[in-house]
Amino acid sequence: MSGPFLGVLRGRGRLSGLALPVMIQFFHVYKAYPGDPPVLQDINLNVEKGEFVFLTGPSGAGKTTLLKLIFCGEKATKGQILVGGKNIARIRESAVPYLRRNIGVVFQDFKLLPHRSVADNVGFTLDVLGVPRAEGREKVHRMLKRVGLEHKANSLPLRLSGGEQQRVVIARALVNDPTILLADEPTGNLDPALTVEIMDLLTDINIRGTTVMVATHDATLLSRYQKRTVRLERGLIVSDEDGVKAARRMLV
C-alpha cells in the first residue's frame, strides 16, 4: 500500500485469517434526512485493504449513500466511519479534499466534462494535485493505455461508446493511484459484453492492490465474479457473505 494511510492502518483481516489492515470501518452508522425514514440504519462493516466487495440490494436500499459516506459526499447522522484509520465522521471540512485524493470514485452518470478531451478529463485529477504538465501527460497516457483508450486521447467523451466513457471515468479515478476505488453501478448502462470488459478492468485493478467497492443490483455480476457481497435492504445490512456463498445463493 502506498500513500498516507500506511502508518495508520491497524485492523485485522476478517475473511482470510491473515493479518490484513482494515481500510474501511463502519460502527453503528445511521444516515437520515429530516422528515424521511432513515436511509441507513446501524451499519457495521469492515473492508480490508486490497479487498473486493460488492454492495448489492434493490434500488433505494442505501448503496449509493453508503459509498457517499466513505468519500464524505454525505455526512453520517450517527456513528463512526474510519477510512484508512481516520475517523471521517469528525473530519474537518478543510481536510476532506485530502481524503478524497486517496479515493477514486466511478459515478453511475460518468460525470465527464463534455467539452474537454478524454486526456483532459483523465488529467483533471492531476491538475488538482498540481502534477507538472509533462509528468501528468505521461501518467494520463499510461492510464489510457491501461484501459485501452490511448488511441482516443484527443476525442471528446460524447463521441465515445458507453463502455469507453465508463473506462475514461475509471482512468480518471485511478490516475493518481488511489488506495480505494468506489464504483457506483459502473455497469448500469452497459450491455453484457461491455459489462464484462469493465468488470475485468476493476478486477485487474483490485489484483494490483487497490481496495474496490462496487455497488450493483446486477445479480449476474455477483455470481460471475464471486466476491464478498454485502446486501442492503431498506438501509440495513441483511447479509454479508464471501463470494462463493453469495454466488451459490444467487444460483438458488
Binding site: F71, G73, S94, P97, Y98, L99, R100, R101, V105, K111, L113, F124, T125, V128, L129, R172
Partner: peptide, 16 residues
C-alpha cells in the same frame, strides 16, 4: 458548475 463539482470530488480544496 459541473467542472467545480468534479474538482471537489477528486480532491480540490476550496482555494483551488
Amino acid at each position: 458548475r459541473e467542472e467545480i463539482e468534479i474538482q471537489k470530488l477528486v480532491g480540490a480544496t476550496d482555494r483551488f
